[in-house]
Amino acid sequence: MIRSYTDHAANERTFLAWLRTGIAVIAFGFLIEKFDLFVDTMAAAVSAEGVRPQALEHMTTPFGWGAGHAFIVVGIIFILVATFRFVRTGWMLDDQKIHSPGIVADLSLSVTLALLLIVVSVLLFFHA
C-alpha cells in the first residue's frame, strides 16, 4: 500500500489540472496565430481579384503573431512549472519533515497570465 495515497492522488489531480490549463493556453495561442494567418490569406485572395478590402487589412497585424506566440510560451511555462511542482510535492509528501507551502510559482504564473489577457484585451479593444 502506498503511504499517504490520498495526498499523492491529490497531487496528481492538481498536476493534471495544471497540464490541462497549459494545453488550453497553448491551444488559444495557436488559435490566435492561425486566425491571423487565415485573415491574411483571405485578404491576399481577395486582393488578387481587385482592391484589398480595408476591413481585412485592418484585421491583419503583427499583433496576432506576437500574441499567439506569447500565449504558447506561457502555456509551455505552465507545463514546465506543473512538472516541477508535481515532482517536488511528491518528494515532500514522502519526506517526514514539515514543509511550508510555496505559492510564488502559482501567484507569478497567475499574474503573468492575467496580465497577458489584459494586454491582449486592451489591444483588441483599441484596435477594433
Rank of each mutant, 00 (worst) to 15 (best):
F84L: 10
D40P: 00
W91E: 09
I77L: 15
H99Q: 06
G66Q: 13
T89G: 03
V39Y: 01
W91C: 08
V39W: 01
P62R: 12
I103F: 12
E49P: 00
P101L: 15
A55W: 15
H58G: 13
A70L: 12
V46D: 02
A48F: 12
T60N: 07
G102W: 03
G50M: 11
Q54P: 11
L37C: 02
V81Q: 01
I77G: 06
F38D: 03
A44C: 04
A44M: 10
A44L: 13
R52I: 06
M42N: 05
T41E: 08
T41G: 13
G50R: 09
A44E: 09
F63W: 10
L80R: 02
V39F: 04
D94G: 13
V74L: 14
F86K: 02
W91S: 05
P53K: 06
L93E: 01
G102A: 13
V46S: 05
V81W: 00
Q54F: 15
K97L: 14
T89Q: 14
F86G: 00
I72K: 13
V73C: 09
A55C: 12
S47L: 07
A44Q: 10
R52H: 08
I79A: 10
R52A: 15
V81D: 01
A70W: 03
I98C: 05
W91L: 15
T89W: 10
V87H: 06
G68D: 02
P101W: 13
D40R: 00
G90A: 09
Q96W: 09
G68Y: 02
L93Y: 06
I98Y: 07
T41C: 06
F86V: 00
S47P: 04
L37T: 03
T41H: 07
T83A: 14
D94S: 13
M59Q: 10
T41V: 07
G68T: 01
F38H: 02
Q96S: 15
R52C: 11
V74E: 03
T61I: 08
H58A: 15
P62K: 11
F71M: 13
S47T: 06
R52M: 14
Q96E: 14
F38Y: 08
F71V: 05
V51F: 10
M42L: 15
G66E: 10
E57W: 00
I103H: 08
T89E: 14
L80N: 04
F86Y: 12
